[in-house]
Amino acid sequence: MTQTTFSQLLYLACGAFLLAAVLVLWRRELAAIVRLFALQGVALTGIVAVLAAHERSLELGLVAAGIAGLRAVLLPYLVRRALDRAGPGRETKPLVNVAASLLAAAVLTLVAYAVSQPLIALAPSPATRAVPVGLAVVLIGFFVLVTRRRALSQVVGFLLIDNGITAIAFLTTAGVPLIVELGVSLDVLFAALVLQVLTTRMRATFGHTDLDELRELRDA
C-alpha cells in the first residue's frame, strides 16, 4: 500500500462521506434520506478500512467491521423500520429551502476547513488533512437537525453528527480507546432506539411527526 494510493483511496472515501451528507440536504423524500445515510455508513467503513490497511493493524480492521455492522446496517434498518410503519412520507417544506441549505452547507465546509487548521498543523499527515471533512459533516448534520421538520430527518441529522465525530476520531488518532469506542457506539444505538420509540409514540398521539407543530410546551 504505497503512500500515494493510500491518500487517494482515503480522499475518495472522505469525498463519498461528505457527498452523502450534502445529498441528505438535497433530497426531500425520507426513504431517499435513509438510503443516503446507509451510503454514508459504508463510506465511513471505507475510511476506517483504508486506515487499517495502511497501518496493517488487525484490531483496526475488526473495528471497521464493527462500524460497518452498526452504522451501515443496523441503524439504517432501525430508521427504515420506523419509516415503513408510517408509509412513504415526504419531508414537509423545511424551514430553510433547499437552495439556501446547499449554500449553507458550502459555508459550513469553509468554516470547518478554517477551524481545523490548528488540528492539521499539530501533526500534518494525509489522515489529519482529511479532518475538515469530518468537521464539515458534523456541522451539516447539526444544520439538518436545525432546519428539517420531520422527526425522522432529525434522527438522521443526529446520526450524521455521530458519523462525523467517529470519522474525526479515526482520522486523528486511529480511534479512541476501545472501551470508550464500544460505549459510545452502544449509547448511539440506544439514542437511536429511544428516538425511534418516541417517533412512533408521537405518531400515535399527534398523528403526524412534524416537529414544528410541537409547540404546546412554551412560554410564549
Binding site: I161, F206, L211
Partner: peptide, 26 residues
C-alpha cells in the same frame, strides 16, 4: 412526548459536541 423528544434531541446533540471535544483532546 414533546418534552421527551426535545430532551433527548437537544441533550444528545450537546453530548455529541462534548464527545467531539473529547476526541480532539485525545
Amino acid at each position: 412526548v414533546e418534552a421527551g423528544w426535545k430532551y433527548v434531541v437537544i441533550c444528545s446533540v450537546g453530548i455529541a459536541l462534548a464527545f467531539l471535544g473529547a476526541v480532539l483532546l485525545n
